[in-house]
Design a protein around this nucleic acid. Structure first.
Lengths: 333, 333
DNA sequence: GGCGAACGTGCAATCGTTCCCAAAATTTGT
DNA sequence: ACAAATTTTGGGAACGATTGCACGTTCGCC
């Protein structure tokens, strides 16, 4: 019993009685007569032939593989994003290669890998070290686009929610409910996303003549947000509302409220940003600003494909509007 | 300005003043003198050379790409699994290519893709259609292993939690708390995982002299589980405890309890299976059987690598013990 | 100092495709 | 029915690496 070598294009050609060019054309949609096409397809299926991916991409310089760099998946938002990307890219025959960035290190150490897997393009949904990555990728002529985060150096194109708009709308919502003492729990400080949300929220408050909100870092983590919430609510004059830079932290904040015996939406209002799946669950019923994930993913893929096709699109960041979703975690003061 | 073609091994060879064989050996760890190695590495880094992935895998028949087929990621368990796999495989220089199976269709329609991307191996963490996939993969000589699910045809190796042990332990726990009227919410019926858990749970109850539990299908979905919970709890003689075939459904069951004004752990006990991250959150505090995900992933990767290395391992399913985690969603009857 | 062993090197074949090119076959027009 | 236009076909050169083989070197050792 010899290990059967998988059939090659030549085996198919022989069996179909044509040249390998014909077989190639039959598979890639080149011009072939109906007759040969049939014969080729028949021979191929009899032999269980499948074109070799590596040979093909060696010749064409296309792998139909797209890298997706994301941070720790315990933030519910990312699984949703991954699923959407996977589905969207599948429509164009592409697949997602995952790069989960180790929390602290960011994705800098995996740049080499990112560039070494023959990907057609890369989507950076990870927050940190965008600048270095940007530089390295453009040097390697690798198409890149950012998702839910902008490259502050302005060299990479990207797609994100209009964070400033969203944060302003959340601010208006809380202010409209009569809150004036509002705290903010931000994410990691060097993330553009967090910064934009925080800044816009603050500005809106100041513009409404309210005091500058207390700012705490939640580091985009549950523990961080829980700790921040604890500190805020146990202070002498606790805020009546807290705006968290994302749902992941807002949910932790709600948990912490319960722990402290405060009812979210009554004793203290909590608002988030993202609208992850479980935000809608009755236990949380989180008021939040919904990111238009589907539209963002579509735009992102489109942009990346344009880059891959050779269209230069430098530094343009597309900002899509989301939608305020009011639930019961916020209420009148 | 001409589009600069990425440097090839030949460019490096020329610049370093050696043959391409030497360059290749310097990169793949072949035998080269210290002197040449240095010259090659220097030339390579000056040119920003990276070996072409496709050329390399064409020659070596190895892509260092592993396919991972999973179902909808809204079940919290899978993101955790994905992250673990990604991390574990990265240790061996491999990357995960994602195949998210569209709910209804299962992964049957994507078999061709699964086999067409030049993967070194495939991990099936998706529940359905294992048999067809198994057949097709072995025919294509593609190493495959199942995760958290067993191939009933017994042809594919796999790794999963000892579901029967786990379910029995959960049953004992509930019985020990004095429950005798216990209902079960199962997943999709043709999933081995659900079947094993349900069967073992039932057996344990019968063995304890308790009545055969009511069985409802939750279809592994939130909505399904919520509906089932509603029906169970609004019945004439509602059960005092509910065992859900996974946490995803158990969490939905808890939500539904709140909706119906019943306190989990007091009015009705809820137990799950998996121990996903949020099960530990105070809002849920779900009693559950923890799957040893890290160990499972390790074993799974090891098994797959063995297959890739050519060691035949047919149909062996490894079942690892987990651990009961008691929280407050279950209580005395 | 001479003789193997050990090591480092380059040549050339090879992996399985795609695609250009010229030739052959077919269709079309008159 | 013949020439021109069109379509289909096969040969063969890439694509960018790895690797078996044979040939020099270098070195150690008696």
């Amino acid at each position: 019993m010899t290990a059967v070598r998988p059939p090659t294009i030549i085996d198919v050609a022989r069996r179909a009685g044509v040249s390998k060019s014909a077989v190639s054309r039959a598979f890639t949609g080149g011009s072939v007569s109906e007759d040969t096409r049939e014969r080729v397809l028949k021979a191929a299926s009899e032999l269980r032939y499948r074109p070799s991916h590596s040979a093909r991409s060696l010749k064409t310089n296309r792998s139909r593989l797209i890298g997706l760099a994301v941070t720790h998946l315990d933030n519910q938002f990312y699984p949703e994003v991954i699923e959407k990307f996977s589905g969207r890219l599948a429509c164009d025959g592409c697949r997602v290669v995952l790069f989960v960035t180790r929390g602290e290190a960011g994705l800098e150490p995996m740049i080499d890998e990112l560039l070494g897997f023959g990907l057609d393009g890369v989507i950076l949904a990870s927050s940190s070290h965008a600048a270095e990555v940007a530089a390295e990728c453009t040097r390697a002529a690798m198409p890149v686009i950012m998702f839910n985060n902008v490259d502050t150096s302005g060299r990479l194109p990207g797609v994100c929610t209009d964070n400033e708009l969203g944060a302003a709308i959340v601010a208006d919502h809380l202010i409209g409910l009569g809150h004036s003492s509002i705290a903010i729990i931000e994410g990691v400080p060097d993330s553009s996303t967090s910064r934009e949300r925080v800044t816009a929220f603050r500005e809106r408050m100041l513009k409404a003549g309210l005091p500058d909100p207390v700012l705490r870092s939640g580091d985009y983590s549950s523990q961080g947000a829980a700790q921040a919430t604890r500190e805020l609510l146990m202070a002498e004059a606790p805020p009546t509302a807290i705006f968290c830079a994302n749902d992941h932290m807002a949910l932790a904040a709600i948990e912490t409220c319960h722990e402290l015996g405060k009812a979210p939406g009554r004793d203290v209002s909590i608002a988030g940003f993202d609208d992850v799946g479980i935000a809608a669950w009755p236990s949380f019923s989180l008021t939040t600003y919904k990111q238009p994930v589907a539209a963002m993913v579509d735009a992102c893929v489109e942009g990346l494909f344009a880059e891959i096709a050779g269209e230069r699109m430098i530094g343009e960041t597309l900002r899509l509007p989301g939608e305020l979703v009011v639930r019961s975690s916020t209420g009148k003061n």
